[in-house]
Design a protein around this nucleic acid. Structure first.
Lengths: 247, 247
DNA sequence: GTACATAAATGTCTTCTTGACATGAAGGGG
DNA sequence: CCCCTTCATGTCAAGAAGACATTTATGTAC
């Protein structure tokens, strides 16, 4: 119960956030430039240490507020899982609890306390090089994107990417950008409107520079989509969070 | 960076397993009776402390082996998430990483090291009283069951509940028991056989006491089901792992 | 061996959903 | 007033799901 091999690991716990949004027609993630060692100057997901007596979700919401100025009440915040490979942090044994946050278009973020800079960056750029992000944040971001893609299928998550009101085209763009596939506007519209509680017309219209004005909608009360929104096969990767020799 | 309120929590990390199987026509979970304080004598999920230099998944697989004698290569093992509410463990700040394991019918388990007993129990019984299980293991189990139900929809997870070979009726029973709804045998069979790579006929048959012999199948190479297996609306609960003021 | 009971396997029909594609409606600019 | 642009709506065929009847293959009783 107390030999060297059976030693209970002395562990620090952090909370990291993958904050995703759609800007300029691309799926982007909020990155900070690390102001301290380790990985000083490298890009990383915002996050920080869990505090004494603080719940995990509370820590995630606190970090979100510190980094973006948003309180979590308006946006989607969900735990992704724990990442705790022994060598993932050179400072020692650190297990991080990763969270996925979905945000509508936000103002350019203000640099946080221990970050020398904060910016939005397209996820493809962040994922292109596995060592682009500090720690194992590339893995976390990959998990976050996979999760977001999947949740678009069977939840109303896409509306969280949009502002208070949005057009059918804007909602469709979320799907197209996050999934990376084009969707038929007519079939998409039919599907959304047929799904009870997905969106409700706001009565207003949005006048564009040209063309017919678009009807504005706001989120409906539904949270799950049944039947789900389909995106052809593929998926990619293990079911949800399967461990290596799983099957 | 080091005031009382900002103190980095000194944390222990454990790994807990929700091991599910279908026995006697019911969804059951492997529980141990705790041999030590806290919660001595109470039922709990198997688990234990993370060791020095040990990966999270490795810890889960080790605990699985210690508690059931199984190596994880044959069964499904996936992380559920982290549970770390401040008061969840009276010994101090303990964050646990919960895992979901799916097993076919197993022999009655042997009591592990620090458990005075181990047994299978129907999940309804375990979930009936929120304080039936030690710690927050009731919450963990609830999460595990929700996850298993959802994964049956769009993955081939159900085959992991079965043995090496199985009949169509046995596979269907998994769905019926885990989802708690009856399914039409004819439509179910059609759906399964139409889904490429879900099952492959083994050529053998199983002779029953009476009636026509049933064709035996084994798992196919597919891991995801597209289109998914449907089970009517409802779902119940937040999308997947959403945090309270999520939307 | 013949009839019966039991359970698996297969088939049919209707309804709903999807995927592909064409047409009409509402605005601004020349 | 016509044209251009963009949103909105409609149609049709193919596919999947839900409901339900029939046939096939075994064992058992007479």
């Amino acid at each position: 119960m107390s030999s060297a091999r059976r030693a209970h690991a002395a562990v620090k716990v952090t909370v990291d956030l993958a904050i995703l949004t759609v800007r300029e027609g691309r799926l982007q993630v909020l990155l900070i430039e690390r102001g301290n060692e380790p990985f000083r100057g490298r890009a990383a997901l915002p996050g920080g240490f869990l505090r004494d007596g603080e719940d995990l979700d509370a820590a995630a919401r606190r970090e979100l507020r510190e980094e973006t100025g948003l309180d979590g009440s308006a946006l989607h915040l969900a735990q992704l899982g724990a990442f705790g490979a022994p060598g993932r942090d050179p400072r020692g044994r650190v297990v991080t609890i990763a969270y996925l946050a979905i945000a509508p278009h936000l103002p350019v973020p203000v640099p946080g306390s221990d970050a020398s800079g904060a910016r939005w960056e397209p996820v493809e750029a962040s994922l292109a090089d596995p060592d682009r992000l500090a720690f194992d944040h590339g893995d976390i971001l990959r998990t976050a994107v996979d999760r977001a893609r999947r949740e678009l299928e069977y939840t109303t998550l896409a509306t969280v990417f949009c502002g208070e009101t949005f057009t059918m085209g804007e909602l469709r763009e979320i799907y197209e950008v996050v999934w990376g596939v084009p969707l038929d506007p007519r079939n998409f519209s039919r599907k959304v409107k047929k799904t009870e509680g997905f969106v409700i017309p706001s009565g207003e219209q949005r006048v564009q520079e040209t063309g017919r004005p678009a009807t504005l909608y706001r989120r409906g009360p539904a949270t799950t989509l049944y039947p789900p929104m389909l995106r052809g096969a593929d998926q990619g990767g293990e079911p949800v969070g399967a461990v290596s020799p799983a099957r």
